[in-house]
């Protein structure tokens, strides 16, 4: 394993983490966010195994052909990564089930549409007008919190 190959693998692992985190932050679709999380996790696992690599070493398995004193790659990151892979699939299953529940509740996977519908629900529950834009969060409502008579008036006007 030459210097160039190790450097290539290091750049690949870091790029995979960067692509995953970028997709995690920039995607609007919930399903694609789960996919980006899986990508970042694969890159982190590759980076951890790469850290434990030693040059001219054998796999950390005792075999008949090798001497017991032969140099092995570091087995501790490999054991940790073995656990992290299985935990990652569990996290992915949990995230997918939450995405399915959100899809059933709001009827969409787009984060922007979901946020607007959620704000409409919250405004309805509070008895206020829904937001018209980000600069008018309560849709023309004055900045101090509404008092009880005004809330009753609003409800009466709407009903």
């Amino acid at each position: 394993m030459s210097e160039f190959a190790l450097l290539t693998l290091l750049i690949g692992a870091l790029s995979l983490i960067a692509i995953g985190i970028g997709g995690l932050v920039l995607s609007r679709n919930l399903f694609r966010i789960v996919l980006a999380l899986s990508l970042a996790e694969a890159g982190a696992n590759l980076l951890l195994v790469l850290v434990g690599f030693r040059r001219d070493a054998i796999a950390p398995i005792i075999e008949q052909g090798h001497a017991l004193t032969a140099t092995m790659v570091d087995p501790i990151p490999q054991a940790m990564v073995l656990t992290a892979i299985v935990i990652g699939v569990g996290v992915q299953a949990l995230a997918l089930s939450l995405a399915i529940r959100a899809y059933v509740a709001y009827g969409t996977l787009d984060m922007n549409v979901m946020r607007s519908r959620m704000e409409t629900d919250i405004s309805d529950a509070a008895g206020a007008q829904p937001a018209t834009s980000q600069h008018a969060p309560a849709g023309g409502r004055p900045l101090p919190p509404i008092s009880a008579p005004r809330l009753a008036h609003n409800k009466g006007a709407q009903g």
């Binding site: 394993m1 190959a5 693998l9 690949g12 399903f31 789960v34 996919l35 899986s38 694969a42 696992n45 590759l46 195994v49 790469l50 690599f53 070493a57 054998i58 796999a59 950390p60 398995i61 790659v73 490999q78 990564v81 073995l82 892979i85 299985v86 990652g88 699939v89 992915q92 299953a93 997918l96 089930s97 995405a99 399915i100």
Partner: peptide, 29 residues
């Protein structure tokens, strides 16, 4: 890459769980 880095057990788990089971979960979802 795990096979190249001399971690055959991790490669086995990644191929079976990371590609197989995770792909099945994603497809069903």
């Amino acid at each position: 890459f795990f096979v190249i880095l001399r971690a055959p057990d991790v490669a086995l788990t990644e191929a079976a769980v990371g590609a197989g089971l995770s792909g099945l979960l994603l497809a069903l979802a």
